[in-house]
């Protein structure tokens, strides 16, 4: 504390001021989206911006929900010519349903497969382990978007093009999760696994009773990380999904933007619908999220 002379105090105050200004600038776009969604057409199209909406209106949301409609869900029963279809709702609601479905399924599949694979890579001494791990690390360093163009042809060959599973599967295959889970599994003491084996516990039991509880924080981090990333993976959604009822919320907003590029009120209402749910999820789980980012980088 004795080193706290005038100069470093001034520096501290300065950096606080700058940080607060920066924080304001980083929050502003979000503020502008949400207030924009609630402004009247006249307020939006005026050359003088209204910093706070003079008059609140829900008209933009009404327009958004009246634009198009789609069934709430469609579910085809495999091998049968049966299709279960939900009630007709505004397309934007269907897009949200699609997005939540996609993000949740991708998250669950990623966590299950990555936890198992990460544990095996960290704790099993099997032939080909080093080679496999190097392949995973090398794949991670490659630009993810480059493989998506070839994926389109693969998906059409599999009959999955314009299907939400075409977005889910590559997300699950991306090796970051395995890498992250390996990092977490390294900390499991080998003696515990040894003891379980001596006690006669089977592989699956050892995994669910000992390994999973120990890497729970890691699974939490991976879950939230996958959820947010797949929600926002616009490029993949763009190239894989085409028909109006299969879109995700981001993709739907982008399509609307292309069609009504000057109706900013409507577009901001859509952007609010796309951004607010995921921001709420992020705020609730941000501790896990931070941990996931940090752990994934340990050996980068």
């Amino acid at each position: 504390m004795s080193k706290d002379n005038g100069r470093s105090k001034a520096y501290t105050i300065c950096s606080w001021v700058i940080l607060i200004i920066l924080a304001f600038l980083f929050i502003f776009p979000l503020y502008w989206i949400i207030t924009g969604a609630l402004k009247t057409q006249a307020a939006i199209n005026s050359p003088t911006p209204q910093w706070w909406p003079g008059e609140f209106t829900l008209r933009n949301f009404q327009t958004l929900f009246s634009k198009r409609s789609a069934p709430l869900f469609q579910f085809k029963i495999p091998f049968l010519p049966l299709m279960v279809t939900g009630p007709i709702v505004p397309a934007a609601i269907r897009w949200l349903v699609n997005t939540v479905f996609m993000a949740v399924v991708a998250m669950v599949l990623t966590c299950v497969t990555a936890a198992m694979a990460g544990y095996a890579l960290a704790k099993k001494r099997f032939i080909g382990r080093t080679l496999l791990f190097s392949l995973i690390v090398a794949a991670m360093a490659l630009p993810k978007q480059v493989i998506l163009i070839p994926l389109i042809r693969e998906m059409s060959a599999l009959g999955l093009y314009d299907n939400i599973w075409a977005v889910i599967f590559p997300t699950v295959g991306w090796p970051f999760g395995v890498f992250l889970m390996k990092q977490f599994s390294e900390s499991i003491p080998g003696e515990m696994l040894e003891a379980a084996r001596i006690d006669g516990a089977g592989e699956m039991r050892t995994f669910t009773q000992i390994v999973v509880p120990m890497i729970k924080p890691g699974i939490g981090a991976l879950a939230i990380f996958t959820f947010i990333n797949s929600w926002n993976d616009y490029f993949m959604q763009l190239i894989m999904l085409t028909s109006s009822s299969n879109l995700t919320i981001s993709l739907g907003i982008a399509t609307m933007q292309a069609e009504n590029s000057t109706d900013y009120g409507l577009i901001m209402a859509g952007a609010t619908l796309a951004a607010v749910p995921i921001i709420v999820v992020f705020l609730i789980f941000q501790k896990y999220f931070t941990k996931g980012i940090t752990m994934g980088a340990v050996k980068g």
């Binding site: 940080l19 920066l22 924080a23 980083f26 929050i27 776009p29 979000l30 502008w32 989206i33 924009g36 939006i44 199209n45 005026s46 050359p47 911006p49 947010i228 929600w231 926002n232 616009y234 981001s250 993709l251 907003i253 982008a254 933007q257 900013y264 577009i267 901001m268 859509g270 952007a271 609010t272 796309a274 951004a275 995921i278 921001i279 992020f282 705020l283 941000q286 931070t290």
Partner: peptide, 28 residues
Amino acid sequence: FRVVFYLPVVTGSVAVTVVWKWMYNNYY
């Protein structure tokens, strides 16, 4: 501060882009 600086990433590229498009707009 961590959350604030992460906010544009979480908001999603589409939502962020459309609002910037409006902010850059020639007239409004």
